[in-house]
Amino acid sequence: MTKELKTKSHLEKVLSLGHFAVTGELGPPRHAKASDVEDKVSHLLGNVDSVNITDNQTAVVRMSSLSASVLAQRKGLEANMQMVCRDRNRIAMQSDILGAAALGINNLLILSGDHQSFGDHPQAKNVYDLDSINLIRTLKNMRDEGRLMSGQELPEDGRPRLFIGAAYNPFADPEDYRVIRAAKKVKAGADFMQSQCIYDMDRFRNFMSRAVDMGLTEKTYFLAGVTPLKSLGMAKYMKNNVPGITMPDFYIERLKGVPKDKQAEEGIKIACEQIEEFKEMKGISGVHLMLVEWEHMVPVIVKAAKLIPRPNV
């Protein structure tokens, strides 16, 4: 699916040329030290096409996604700056979009955001002025129609040329509705979509075949989310404690079958098997590797899954 490019995004170029894209994820630090971001970038550079920079993920205060995105790009790694609807109203979000574009950000990924009760400031007031679908539409109008929500016009050369990202989660409920919600994001203007971590491959296959049938993958690039299991403990934790993630028992059994010090290796092996399947899966344009606080394993997994060298486009 070759398309006319909408932005200067490297990720968009990789996808439009039909390469199997690889994106990474980087969580900014809980302090102001730039070198922390740069160290993480060093593990990802050359191994992914662009990297998601999370926006106060799990509602914990961290360096802002815009700042960390700029730091990553200074080191040569393109950022997919994330923006959640939890902390800003429509004034602040549109303002940050303009600022991000002015600072050379090419990709903006929009999410509802985890509720603040999960984080380190549960006392905070939440905002949710717009939801993610409204914000996707807002950004698309800013870029393509040159208008703010207010109707205020943006000059032709002052529009935020951002490649619009969104998330999809086939594993949340109601199951049948998840593909419809993804369709709403496609309709609102998402150019690429990354999924929540996938473990339940059956449910994912079903979801994707419906997405393909509905023509969604013709309009938007779908990337499959991968987080290798570090240990049996992590698999159990995800099964029981993370809303919106389903964990099949056979992975738990499989990890049980190997000694503790070999479980991480087994987790990587499982992830590689998944990636092999995604490479062949209809409608999937790439993988999104989420190894937050495990960034140094990215080089290992991209090598094992034969995802490098990354295309130089």
Binding site: C85, S112, H115, D131, S132, N134, A172, R181
Partner: peptide, 19 residues
Amino acid sequence: SKSLLNGPCGGSAGGKCEV
């Protein structure tokens, strides 16, 4: 919990809210 007008968010599980 997020006053979404285009929900449900990705945290909806088993009929319960992520919160």
